[in-house]
């Protein structure tokens, strides 16, 4: 199995690793396939419930998983940084995989939890600002894999 240079670059030098003190949202997703784990912390500015206005101003991740999972989390964090919440919600696993110049087929599932964990963080943010109604509309992580 061969990873692209981009995957190896993000694996060796992951961007945005860590946690945020007093985050606006935390999202965790586990991988039901192989049992890995990803956590994202986000800061949102402005603190709006308008998904087209609120942007991710800061994002940090932690991953327990394979090389692809680490690269996916790193790439997804870079792609989400500075984007509006609605843009981030629309981000797909293929967008992330394509930005990494592709993933081996058996590793595509690792890109799932990347986008799902970020969506969970956005859900968490919406709940915290009292917009449960908007939060339920965001896909997030499949129930069984929390």
């Amino acid at each position: 199995m061969q990873y692209s240079q981009k995957v190896m670059d993000h694996f060796m030098n992951p961007r945005n690793v860590g946690e945020i003190e007093n985050p606006d949202g935390i999202g965790t997703c586990g991988n039901p396939v192989c049992g890995d784990l990803m956590t994202f912390h986000i800061k949102v500015e402005p603190h709006s419930d308008d998904l087209n206005a609120a942007r991710i101003s800061q994002i940090r991740f932690k991953t327990f998983g394979c090389g692809a999972a680490i690269a996916v989390a790193s790439m997804a964090s870079e792609m989400a940084q500075g984007k509006t919440l609605s843009e981030v919600i629309q981000m797909s696993r293929d967008d992330v995989a394509n930005s990494l110049d592709g993933l081996p087929p058996i590793k595509m599932h690792c890109s799932n939890i990347g986008v799902q964990a970020i969506q969970e963080a956005i859900k968490d943010y919406l709940k915290r600002i009292g917009r449960q109604d908007l939060a339920v509309k965001v896909k997030g992580c499949p129930k069984e894999s929390h």
């Binding site: 890995d36 394979c66 090389g67």
Partner: peptide, 14 residues
């Protein structure tokens, strides 16, 4: 504990 094997193998390989 707390780390995954493939990521260790990749780093060892490098």
């Amino acid at each position: 504990e707390y780390v995954e094997g493939e990521s260790m193998l990749l780093k060892l390989d490098l």
